[in-house]
């Protein structure tokens, strides 16, 4: 039983590393902000803001998990921001990273539910 738990924790750590590594490649140009169809004036309604929130939460525990969930589930997964990053030749994949964070949160909650 214990081995199983360690394995699952490892997979969570791997996911976190993958997410954080991807966010580190962001050059903070904010070109993705006007690209986001959900942007209505608040920076957290854009890929830049969502990635910043994910980074701060995973690295320093800032912001509640419910708030983070609300931010990442308000993304339309349309990849318009990702297209902009691709054009700028950065390696950031904001939409994929946001989806990966959803998967991370769901996996964490499912694990907590089991323990």
């Amino acid at each position: 039983m214990k081995t199983d738990n360690t394995q699952e924790t490892d997979s969570i750590k791997e996911m976190e590393t993958e997410i954080l590594n991807n966010i580190q490649t962001c050059i903070n140009c904010r070109m993705c902000v006007p690209m986001c169809p959900t942007y209505e004036g608040w920076i957290t309604q854009s890929a830049f803001g969502r990635l910043a929130a994910i980074n701060l939460h995973l690295k320093y525990g800032l912001g509640s998990i419910e708030e983070l969930s609300r931010l990442i589930f308000s993304c339309a997964n349309c990849r318009r921001c990702q297209e902009r990053c691709k054009m700028l030749s950065t390696n950031v994949t904001p939409t994929d990273t946001i989806i990966k964070t959803r998967q991370l949160l769901a996996r964490k909650a499912q694990e907590w539910g089991r323990n």
Binding site: I65, E66, S69, F73, L105, A106, A109, G113
Partner: peptide, 14 residues
């Protein structure tokens, strides 16, 4: 600290 699935994934998605 530990949250249930309902708190991190919107209910319609579940």
């Amino acid at each position: 600290m530990n949250k249930s699935l309902k708190e991190v994934v919107p209910i319609p998605h579940i």
